[in-house]
Simulated assay, not measured.
Amino acid sequence: MRRVLILRPEPGASATAARAAALGLEAVVAPLFVTRPLPWQPPPADRFDAVMLTSAAAARLGGDGLAAYRALPVFAVGAATADAARAAGFADIRAGDADAPALLERIAAAGHRRLLHLAGREHRAAAHPAIAIDRAIVYAADAVEALPRPARVALAEGAVALLHSPRAARHFAGLVDRAAGIGIAAISPAVAEAAGKGWAAIGIADRPDDAALLAVAAALCDQADRLRNG
Rank of each mutant, 00 (worst) to 15 (best):
A215I: 02
A217L: 12
G183V: 09
A219T: 11
D206I: 13
R167I: 06
R178E: 04
A173H: 05
A169T: 03
A212P: 05
A224G: 13
V216F: 03
K197P: 10
A190H: 02
A219N: 05
A180C: 13
A169L: 06
A185I: 06
I184E: 05
A195E: 04
A201P: 07
A192K: 09
P208W: 03
A192W: 00
L175W: 08
A200R: 13
A205V: 07
I187M: 13
H171G: 05
R178F: 00
A186S: 15
A219E: 07
A179T: 13
G181S: 15
W199A: 09
E193M: 00
G183Y: 01
A169R: 01
A200Y: 08
D206S: 14
G203I: 07
I182T: 04
G203Y: 02
D206Y: 12
L214C: 02
G196N: 01
G198A: 13
N229T: 08
D222L: 14
A195W: 03
L175S: 11
G203Q: 04
L175V: 11
A192D: 08
A201F: 11
A211M: 11
H171I: 10
A168I: 01
A169H: 04
P189W: 01
G183W: 03
L214A: 05
D209N: 14
A212N: 07
L175E: 10
R170G: 04
V191T: 12
I184K: 02
R207H: 03
P189A: 08
A194C: 02
A185D: 06
A168R: 01
F172S: 08
I204T: 11
